[in-house]
């Protein structure tokens, strides 16, 4: 199961998911969030909801010089914080902007696709999907 943005247009921009993500990482506030919800150039145009896509062949892992980021079977990333040197290449490689940064530790925040955030989306914008289902749709 992987986290997916099911219906962006239903996003009202409340950012409850971002706070949920921080909470599941043990933090109140926003510093530990792996989700980004921002307007598309003004709230009148709606929102873009940025979450890790769980790429089959993730660019972030490809550019990691220390193998701190490695591919997980079935998509997504495993992050080994001990190996990370905080170079930031992964953040640059992720062109959708889903590698978030923890300024306090100077290391990336990587989504583990736990789906906790989806439980706090009031309109079903976020949800967990099976990879097969996703593939079938495409």
């Amino acid at each position: 199961m992987r986290l997916a943005v099911l219906e962006t247009e239903k996003c009202i921009g409340c950012q409850s998911c971002m706070f949920a993500c921080s909470r599941i990482h043990g933090e109140a506030g926003l510093s530990a969030s792996c989700i980004g919800v921002r307007s598309i150039g003004g709230m009148e145009r709606g929102f873009t909801v940025i979450v890790c896509k769980a790429c089959e062949d993730p660019p972030c892992a490809k550019v990691c010089p220390t193998q701190a980021l490695t591919s997980r079977k079935g998509g997504g990333i495993h992050f080994d914080a001990d190996k990370c040197i905080g170079c930031g290449h992964c953040r640059d490689a992720c062109i959708i902007g889903a590698v978030f940064w923890d300024d306090e530790t100077n290391k990336p925040m990587i989504c583990v696709h736990c789906g906790y955030c989806a439980g706090f989306c009031p309109h079903g914008v976020l949800g967990l999907q099976k990879r097969e289902a996703e593939d079938a749709e495409q």
Partner: peptide, 16 residues
């Protein structure tokens, strides 16, 4: 055309 929310409010009372 759209409903919006304030930060950290799941209600979304803003009507556009």
């Amino acid at each position: 055309g759209r409903r919006l929310a304030c930060s950290h409010c799941p209600v979304g009372c803003i009507h556009i």
